[in-house]
Design a protein around this nucleic acid. Structure first.
Lengths: 306, 306
DNA sequence: CTCATCGTTCTGATTTGGAGAACAATATGG
DNA sequence: CCATATTGTTCTCCAAATCAGAACGATGAG
């Protein structure tokens, strides 16, 4: 980063009125915002914001810095806007591999919008749940939703996916809803993936981690398939929010153990290690990142992670 | 870095009129300047400078960007100037360990100037050739001049020190000057360091690496001592430029094999791995780095490395 | 008094950017 | 016309910077 970027962050922080809010708006951790503000204050040898939990007060120096820095920050934004549109339209191929369910359920609109904004980019979207070999199969990007960060590519974390436990009302008529995590193995559990026996991990309201080990009643790599199976009363599944939105709204599914937290999976944007980002890739990455940050416009209530 | 810093670099490049000159003025490699300019052009999707070896032409777009970016860059510089002086004067202890010869022969003026500029900083300068233990001995910084980068600390490379071979005219009256690297082992060689047998490495004009192995006639860790010994005709030594400047000017020493290159040693600024830079350290590091970049003002002819 | 939320600090991991080598391109001088 | 020097470009590796996330302290509200 640089000192100019620090001034821009300062302007953002003051405009937000809190470190936590600024972090959410910027899409970075609040520890990073706190740290950079402190470094700026250290650099200038003076406090710019008097703050503590529940207290926020811009100092006289901070007020003056905000006033002066705001002017050039908007100058820079104007320059960026003008020159980003001033050049030739980006063109050429851009190929993305996206998990089927996530793509259809979450990114369709965004992908179409991106194509509309950049008609000269030849966008290829491959809906595929395989772990593609980015370099060999010549993808620019892949999106993956996993519990652990992929290690064989350069990854950008776009956000997280919350999971919940669901069952249909029909299933629950024949099997009383579980009252605790320990009750789960007594049920028919539908697992995303392939495993003869597997482990689901949870976090209780008190922060205690707990696992269950079980033999899945059903295995599949299709979230849509698992959704359908769950709706038809085949058992309890653990599914990401974006898959179940409609079924929940229609009353076809019921959330279970809502006080239990399922560790979120990360949404990662991957590209091959040796691939430097070109302009199309950068535009796509920025759009996708912004979309995930704002909850993809589909659900403005979705809060940015912090 | 960030997009604002890239615009600042662009302004600097245009003002310099060449990538090589801008690199020298910025104190970074020309590959880095070339790279960042290309990335900026890639980002805006248009050429900002038409350039090739010997050719330099600002495009229309580049001209406009330069004009607009120049304004806010000077705004930012004004803010930096005002706010850096606006705060309380930096104060507190700052302790540095510096090799004796390098410190006395090269940094005295700079250290005094630094103290004058920051009277509230309690500067402690320890002229010591030992490899100090930064953390245990509580130094903020150490400066070291070595062939290889120190690995047990965080290092910033300040510059390089050129070495040459020297002898006194008196010595050369009794021992004909070496005509080639192969002639060297026939001479009495004075070595900086401690070694029963050691190796000196050279690079011929054609880029070929060549070594000699020999038993030093004299070992010492004091450049001053080796200088005196060389002046008194005890043999041939390999010494850094900053030690021999006066003796050369006075005709007390004669350079040998001037077409032969001695691999330069690096000047490194070290601080303990677990030590975060405080304001005093940062000010010192910036001053020292700038001083080394400009050849320490003692020799304006010294060109910046590139 | 307890709980929730905010801000801070620390550590490990990840990303970014620079150094340097190698090479291509171009201009100049012999 | 050829050789050399200098500039600009590209690539790879490594160092440095920065971020994420965990843990903890502080503060306010109920």
């Amino acid at each position: 980063m640089g000192q100019m970027e620090d001034l821009r962050l300062f302007v953002q922080v003051v405009a937000s009125g809190s470190i936590s809010k600024a972090a959410a708006e910027l899409g970075i951790a609040k520890s990073a915002v706190s740290r950079r503000l402190s470094l700026l204050e250290d650099r200038y040898g003076t406090r710019l914001v008097d703050r503590s939990p529940g207290h926020w007060d811009l100092t006289e120096t901070g007020r003056e810095l905000f006033q002066r820095a705001s002017r050039f920050v908007s100058d820079v934004d104007d320059i960026e806007d003008d020159f980003l549109s001033n050049g030739t339209a980006p063109s050429g191929p851009l190929s993305i591999s996206i998990p089927r369910d996530f793509g259809h359920g979450f990114l369709n609109k965004e992908l179409i919008d991106f194509q509309a904004r950049h008609p000269d980019i030849q966008l290829t979207v491959d809906f595929d749940d395989r772990l593609v070999d980015l370099a060999r199969e010549n993808y620019d990007f892949a999106i993956r939703i996993t519990e652990t960060r992929p290690e064989d590519a350069i990854t950008m974390k776009l956000g997280t996916v919350e999971h919940c436990l669901f069952a249909s009302p029909d299933y629950l008529r024949g099997h009383p809803a579980p009252q605790s995590i320990d009750d789960l193995p007594k049920h028919r559990l539908l697992h995303f993936g392939w495993a003869r026996r597997t482990v689901w991990e949870f976090q209780t309201q008190k922060g205690k981690r707990q696992q269950i080990e079980f033999q899945p009643a059903l295995n599949s790599n299709s979230g849509t398939f698992l959704l359908d199976a769950t709706i038809q009363g085949h058992g309890i599944s653990r599914l990401p929010d974006f898959i179940v939105t409609e079924a929940l709204a229609a009353g076809k599914l019921v959330p279970l153990l809502p006080d239990i937290a399922v560790p979120a999976w990360g949404i990662y944007l991957l590209h091959a290690r040796e691939r430097r980002l070109n302009r199309r890739m950068r535009l796509f990455a920025e759009d996708i990142r912004a979309a995930c940050l704002s909850g993809l416009g589909n659900d403005p209530q979705a809060a940015a992670q912090s």
